[in-house]
Simulated scan of single mutants.
Amino acid sequence: MSQIVMENPQQYRVAMQAAALAFLERHQGQHLDQEELAERTTRHLVEALDVPTFMASRLVHLALSQLHNGAEWVGLDLAAGPDEHLVILVDTDSGQRALIPRRILSDAFLAQAGAR
């Protein structure tokens, strides 16, 4: 067992959660669904870093929360609407799209979305 575990269990958990978060960030773009990504990350912690399975799954859950904390969950597609009075909101997690009237969005919000 690693020296860090013996000296400070909290420090060990923080370090292993950081390792899980780093793995998630590196592999999230591989178009895996969230459950597959979580399983793969858990397997990485267990096999590569010798984290106990019960702890690895909990650390992955916490790291996933960190990963999605503050992440954009909605996008705005200004060009895809059928006319200039409609825009499409996009749920970036699920890919679902919703057509909404442009008039209900503030000019500042539209300007910021157009700048991206």
Rank of each mutant, 00 (worst) to 15 (best):
I4G: 00
Q30P: 04
L49V: 01
L45F: 08
S65Y: 06
E7N: 01
Q3C: 01
T42R: 10
F54K: 06
R13D: 03
Y12W: 12
W73C: 11
E39D: 11
V51S: 04
R43K: 09
N69M: 11
W73Y: 13
D83W: 14
R26P: 03
L78E: 12
A71Q: 15
G70M: 13
G70Q: 13
P52Q: 10
S65D: 13
V74R: 14
A22R: 07
Q10G: 01
L21I: 03
T41L: 02
D83C: 14
A48M: 09
A20I: 04
M55L: 15
Q11W: 00
R26D: 14
E7Q: 01
R13E: 04
V90Y: 07
L78W: 10
D91L: 05
T42N: 03
S65T: 09
T41F: 01
V87G: 06
E25C: 02
F54W: 08
A18H: 02
V90D: 03
T42D: 05
E25M: 08
T42W: 05
H31W: 07
I88C: 11
H85N: 15
A48Y: 06
R43W: 06
E36I: 05
A15E: 09
S65C: 11
V87M: 08
L59I: 09
L86Q: 15
R40N: 11
L76A: 12
A79K: 15
A18Q: 03
L86F: 13
D83T: 14
F23H: 15
E35T: 10
V74A: 14
G75C: 12
N69C: 12
L62A: 13
G29L: 08
A38Y: 05
L32G: 03
P9D: 00
H68W: 15
L24I: 15
L24M: 12
T92H: 10
V90C: 08
N8W: 01
V51A: 05
W73M: 13
G75L: 12
E47A: 06
P52A: 07
H31V: 04
L59P: 10
L32V: 00
V51K: 04
P52Y: 10
Q34F: 08
